[in-house]
Amino acid sequence: MAQPDDIFGDDDYPAYTMGRAAEIVGASQEFLRRLDEQKLISPFRSTGGHRRYSRYQLRLAARAREMVDQGTALEAACRIIILEDQLEEALQLNRKLKQQEPTDMT
C-alpha cells in the first residue's frame, strides 16, 4: 500500500482539483477544459466524475498559459508542447539505449 509521502512525491498522482489546479496555473477552469479538448492534458476523473490533475499536468498547463499569454494561439501552443514532450521522451530513450550498448572491444 502506498504511503502518503510516496503519493505526494509522485508527479503523476492526480492530487489537485480543477479549482486548485486553475489557481496554481493562474488560469481559468475553462482554460483547463480547453487544454483537455486539445488533448494536451487528460485529467483523471474521480468516481464522481470530477477532474483531478497531477503536478506534471500542471507544468504542461502553466507552459501553455505562458505561451498563450505571449500571443501563441492555444491550438499551436498545445501542439508545440506535445511535440516538445515527445522529443524529450525520445531523447531519454535514446540515452538509455546508448547506455545499454555493449562497448566495442577491438
Rank of each mutant, 00 (worst) to 15 (best):
E37C: 03
G71V: 08
I80E: 11
A77F: 02
A64H: 08
L58D: 01
R34Y: 13
I24T: 08
V25R: 08
H50P: 01
A62G: 04
E37R: 15
M67R: 13
R79Q: 15
P43D: 06
E75R: 14
A64S: 10
A22W: 04
Q86E: 15
R20D: 10
E66N: 10
D69N: 14
S54A: 11
R55H: 11
L83A: 13
L40D: 07
R33Y: 11
A61Y: 05
V68E: 02
D85A: 11
P43L: 08
G71W: 10
D85Y: 09
L35D: 02
A64F: 06
A76P: 00
E84N: 11
S28W: 01
L32N: 01
A62S: 15
Y56P: 00
L83E: 15
F44A: 12
A76W: 01
R59A: 12
I80Q: 15
A22I: 12
A62H: 08
G26D: 07
R65T: 01
S28M: 07
E37I: 10
G26H: 04
A22D: 05
R51C: 03
L60T: 03
R33H: 15
T47L: 09
H50N: 11
M67Q: 13
L32D: 03
R65C: 04
R52D: 01
E37S: 12
E37N: 08
V25E: 02
K39M: 08
I41M: 03
Q57N: 06
Q86P: 01
C78R: 09
G49L: 03
E23I: 02
Q38T: 10
L32Q: 00
L32F: 02
Q86G: 07
G19K: 12
G19V: 02
D69A: 14
G26I: 05
D69S: 15
K39N: 12
E30K: 14
E66I: 00
F44I: 00
R52N: 02
Q70L: 10
F31N: 03
R52Q: 14
M67T: 00
R45L: 15
R52Y: 02
A73Q: 13
K39F: 05
H50Y: 10
L40C: 06
R55T: 13
Q29F: 00
I41G: 00
L32P: 01
G71K: 05
R45C: 05
I80S: 11
E84R: 09
A27I: 09
C78L: 09
L74I: 11
Q38N: 15
R34M: 11
K39A: 13
R79C: 08
G19A: 12
C78Q: 11
L74Y: 01
